[in-house]
Design a protein around this nucleic acid. Sequence first.
DNA 1: GATTTCACGTA
DNA 2: CGTACGTGAAATCC
Length: 571
Amino acid sequence: MSLNIEPGEVVALALDPAAGAAIVRSDAETILLGADDAFATLARIEREAGPRWVWWSKSTAWQLVENDIHPTRCWDLAAVHRLLYGGWRTNPAMIWAACQGLDTSGIPETAPVDLFTVVDEFDRPDEAVRHDGYLRPDWVEGAWGTNLDRLSRWAGLASEVQSWQVGRLAELADHPRATATARSESAAELLGTELQHDGLPIDTAEAERIIGGFIGPRPLDAADESAKLDARDRAVLDHLPADADFDLRNPANVKSLLRRVGIEVPDTRAWRLEQLRTQHPVVDALLTWRKAERMATTFGYTWLDENVGPDQRLRGSWSASDGASGRMTATAGLHNMPADLRPSIVAEDGFLFVRSDLGQIEPRVLASVSGDGDLALATHDDDMYAPVAERLGVEREIAKVAVLGAMYGQTTGHGAEALRGLESAYPIAMGYLYNADTAAQGGHHLRTNGGRLIRMRAGDVTEMSDRDARSRAAARGRYGRNAMIQGAAAELFKMWAVLVRARSLNLGAQIVLCLHDELLVQAPTDQAERTAEIVDDCLQEAAYRWAPTTRGPKVRFVADTSIIARWSDAK
DNA sequence: GATTTCACGTA
DNA sequence: CGTACGTGAAATCC
């Protein structure tokens, strides 16, 4: 079969393991694949041509990954929809409605069939689109996958939506990188699917050893577990009079406990208690207890049992662009695993990790998205806070706090005075943040450099004191200025990550963790050096693709890359 | 039973 | 009175 599909050619794909697959090219030519050889043919097309696969959602990506097909290029309609309309949940019904200019509040839902069900004379179960223009709910829920006719119709609609999305992205005149971002966000969904499918290598024996150091060996049974728990509680309560009975898991109770020994605190957070360690031995005992309790409840033996497979891989579900931040998020503790557990993250036999993290990513992103030439010059330094400090005539630490404070919306503390200096030294960068802040306070939506919409809700200030209203407005401002930086950084990171993924696939390397500004790639031992080079090269390429400098000094991005066997071996 | 608050881990 | 996120326990609300 000669398909003559060209590299990068846009082809829509709908597939169902039982029914087969349909591929629709932009000229509407349709290729149908039977269920028996669909995946083999798809693998061949990917290998020989490498088109840009268009699919409705990552469920199609999941099917491919499950069949060991790892496309390099894709276009995820749901991911691009989120880019265009903001970071909320979506489905084909909403994506289609947007494309047709239909009101999303009118999207039909499947109603249970009962006595009162009105038979629609226009009802055509074999048509995806209803006479009112909306998608049929049963198609949205999967009826598209029942036979090849329907698959081909579903892929055809995907093709139609994709063309429309390309047009919409091109209309974002102030965001020339939006189309490039749409591609990388799509690939990031695919990467998330692979991360979810394949997991992170973990040495459970080592993990159990570390956990044991905090809470003792694995409990033998429920009684043993409860005895160990009591023993941990007692270690704290023993510092108090014998009649004291406080529930250490209850913050209000802990507050009373501290009051009993003469310590008054507004809350019992660790950073606050940390300063009071010397006041009374119970504080130190309590902090130790907290650490153990965290290990026991969140990152203990149960956590290992529930999230690590027999293949020694830790798996969670991944979302490629979440909330306001647009960052990747993951469950199963993959993004908040205590650093103490890092020694248990070990490359498999015959492999090494290439670990790389972006240095000072947010201030560098600020220099880039704001177009501040002076701040761009500062990024030429490995440590950009040094030239900023020099320019401001302050200590490096002060400069750092001021820059971070400006991006996070901090207005008090040490950074406050240095902030004035920043405003006069880097007015363009500071103006960018100020504009984001003001727009957000006014309830105006924002778009990141890559064109991702950050939706703002107009603040409801009725029945609120002036003080509260001001405080809410300030919070919205902080949210806005931070979302523009954190969101843009997330886009650059993902562009980097998906380039690394695509370039290192043929080396047998695999990204096993994305951690906001850090990549962990597992590579065959003899390909580790090459993979590390690719990681560094891809950062420069990502920076160019995401924000090519058209005028003024180039913004420099830096990564710290190392080859290690164990995650804890770096930093 | 669902939602909110507090707490704490990561960036 | 610096941001984002996920998770768990207890309190709170219905």
